[in-house]
Design a protein around this nucleic acid. Structure first.
Lengths: 156, 156
DNA sequence: ATCTTTTGGTTGACACGTCAACCAAAATTT
DNA sequence: AAATTTTGGTTGACGTGTCAACCAAAAGAT
């Protein structure tokens, strides 16, 4: 319960962290977009359709795997459908919609994979020391932990 | 010039890094928005108007200090003006526009400062080890450096 | 003095996200 | 069986960002 405002230096850490992220992430995304026409969302969707579903997946499944709301995914798919990357098809046997990668979608994904890979290496991995990697890994644990421990009201 | 695709583990580092950022940043921004009604952009603008300009600044100056395009700032100010947080006023002596914090803007800023401070501490600083801080600091240097050294074509 | 470029700013179109409202088909309750 | 809740998905409004086109005032060039 530390009520003191954070210091100038602490604020600097925050700013450095934010701007590093934005620079690196921006470079990767921009590279991918310029070279393949895919956004991060597009890539994530096509990637999961390929890996988890061999080209098709139920919409809700897809949303869960990306940690997206159904609304967000619905909007995004509408745009991707318009561009011919995926199509939606009602499921006969049960409720729900199948999302299917088109051939254009498949080839866009195949084009993008190496580009993304190279960009992540160049703009991110190449900048990291062993220590950085350790930091990233452990911080990720700690952030995940934080989600489940917002215990103002302890479990009954 | 490493042409090999990155490994599964390397991709994991990337994903961990992204999701840590998104979680932490999301928490801070959400907290601020829920408690004060200000977005990150709003806060940045009001903060700079206060620190650099004692309540007023030329639009382009402001844009530069935030590393925003003039277009982005123009759009954002239009929205903030509608909400009564700032106002724009042509400069008589020279070309350009003064951005001025309204009293509503000032008080929103004063309300937000401690909230932001606390959120950054709780969701970010409290999670960091000394090592993490060192990593963040040095990585920031390295990312900044990378910007100026995209030398496929060396300077003439 | 006129022509050109730079500077400061706006605007419209569109991608991306969130939120809340809505809808219909299951699945459960009662 | 009828009423209720949950689930899967869409939609519209609006905040946020980018890009390109536009505009006018200022500064420089010829």
């Amino acid at each position: 319960m530390n009520k003191k405002m954070i210091s100038e230096e602490e604020m600097q850490i925050w700013h450095m962290w934010k701007s590093s992220y934005k620079r690196i992430f921006g470079r990767v995304v921009k590279d991918m977009f310029e070279k393949t026409g895919l956004s991060e969302g597009d890539f994530g969707i096509l990637d999961r359709l390929d890996l988890f579903g061999k080209g098709k997946l139920r919409q809700q499944e897809l949303a869960d795997s990306m940690d997206w709301t159904k609304s967000r995914l619905s909007h995004h798919l509408t745009r991707m459908e318009k561009r011919g990357l995926v199509l939606r098809e009602p499921i006969k046997t049960e409720r729900g919609v199948q999302v299917i990668t088109t051939s254009a979608g498949k080839s866009a994904l195949e084009d993008a994979r190496p580009v993304v890979s190279m960009a992540i290496r160049e703009y991110f991995l190449d900048l990291l020391t062993e220590q950085d990697i350790e930091s990233i890994t452990t911080l990720a644990e700690r952030t995940k932990a934080k989600s489940s421990s917002a215990c103002n009201t302890p479990p009954s």
